[in-house]
Every structure is written in structure tokens, then in C-alpha cells.
């Protein structure tokens, strides 16, 4: 049985796994974006706060994903909770960093004008500063998504959802009839899905970034 036959034969299960994989990554990216933008907004005005937030997020990223899962499993058990926590933590760095950079890059004259013509502090943030930082934030989310696609595979170790279970069972049963097909399907599937998601980002960028600031 070659890979294509294998995929055709197991399509029901594989498509569900693929869907769950993408779904977990997208949801975790969105969650990380909410959290990361909130953190970015909270610290971007203070250089020390920005440095601290970036350093913390970087530290998380240096922990190998296996090690992080191993640390989380005793606390949160096996399954979706641990996977979500791990993925969100990994997605934070690019999003927090890009939020800080994006907000910091807003021309002070523009913010000043916004205040000066009577926008509230909240209005300046949501209607001007975040809108102008949005391309950078979106770029951060894009990087995070690509990263999570790979890390989500490892999350199968914690019995998380997605294509990782294909890869792991392929590795676990090395030498048996379909082990190679399983590992290949899981890996190629992740790559294809990652490319598709990247295409989605291009579309989101086109529809949500003002023509006035698009590069």
C-alpha cells in the first residue's frame, strides 16, 4: 500500500485529524493573539515592561516542546488542556513582540493629533494605534501559526488532537506494514495544511489592512 492508497483508505479518520489539527492551531493562535495583544498594549509604553515581556516570552520559546509538555502533563493531565496551554505559550512570543514593535512604530504625531482632536485614550488605541500596528500583529500571528503547526504534532505526546497521533504511531510501530505511510501522511499533511493557512493569512491581510498603510 503506498501513501496515496493509505490516505484514500483512511480518509475519514485522516480528514478528521487534519481538521482537529488546524482547528487547535487556529484557536490557540486566536487565544494567543488576544492575550499577546493585551500584554503588548499593557507594556508598550514602558521600555522596561516591553523588555521584560519580550524576555519572558522568549524564555518560554527556548523550552523544548517535549520538556514543556512533560512539565504540564503532571499539572493538567493528558489531553486538550495541556495541548492548548502549550500551544498558546509558544505562540505568545511572536505576537507580543510584534505588538510592541507595531505600537511603538506608530508616529507619535499621529497619536498626538488623535488626542488633540478629542479622541478618548481608548479610541486612540483601538481606532488609530492598533489599526496601524495591525499589519505587524498579523505578521506575528502568521509566524505563530506556522510554528504551532509543527509543535501541535508534538502535542500528540500529551494525547492532544491532530495529525501528531499519525506521526507518533508511525514512529512507535516502526517496521510494521503502514508505519512509513503513517509518519509520511502526518508530516506531509502538516506541511500542506501550513501552506493553506499561510494562504488564508494573505487573504486576511488583504481584507483587514487599510490600503493607506499596505506596503
Amino acid at each position: 500500500m503506498n501513501v496515496l492508497e493509505y490516505v484514500a483508505d483512511r480518509w475519514d479518520r485522516l480528514s478528521l485529524q487534519a481538521f482537529l489539527h488546524v482547528s487547535a492551531v487556529v484557536q490557540c493562535t486566536v487565544l494567543a493573539a488576544l492575550l499577546g495583544v493585551a500584554i503588548g498594549v499593557a507594556v508598550y509604553r514602558s521600555p522596561a515592561g516591553s523588555a521584560l515581556a519580550t524576555a519572558l516570552a522568549s524564555t518560554i520559546l527556548t523550552i523544548p516542546s517535549f520538556a514543556l509538555l512533560a512539565l504540564l502533563i503532571p499539572v493538567f493531565g493528558l489531553g486538550a488542556d495541556t495541548t492548548v496551554i502549550a500551544l498558546v505559550l509558544y505562540a505568545l512570543l511572536p505576537i507580543v513582540r510584534n505588538t510592541i514593535v507595531g505600537l511603538g512604530g506608530v508616529d507619535p504625531a499621529v497619536s498626538d493629533a488623535a488626542r488633540g482632536i478629542g479622541m478618548s485614550r481608548f479610541g486612540v488605541l483601538t481606532r488609530v494605534e492598533l489599526r496601524l500596528a495591525w499589519p505587524a500583529i498579523l505578521a506575528g500571528m502568521r509566524v505563530a501559526t506556522q510554528m504551532l503547526m509543527g509543535i501541535a504534532v508534538i502535542a500528540a505526546y500529551a494525547k492532544g488532537p491532530g495529525l501528531g497521533s499519525e506521526v507518533f504511531s508511525g514512529l512507535a510501530n516502526a517496521g510494521s506494514a503502514n508505519s512509513m505511510n503513517q509518519a509520511l501522511t502526518g508530516t506531509i499533511g502538516v506541511v500542506v495544511l501550513a501552506l493553506l493557512l499561510d494562504g488564508v493569512y494573505v487573504l486576511v491581510n488583504r481584507f483587514t489592512v487599510s490600503r493607506g498603510v499596505r506596503g
Partner: peptide, 13 residues
């Protein structure tokens, strides 16, 4: 009314 140097226009509007 408030007008400043380099206008301070909102580039995304």
C-alpha cells in the same frame, strides 16, 4: 480645532 506640523493625518483613513 487642532492642526499640527506634518498634519498628523491618520494614514489608514
Amino acid at each position: 480645532g487642532y492642526a499640527i506640523q506634518q498634519a498628523g493625518l491618520f494614514p489608514h483613513f
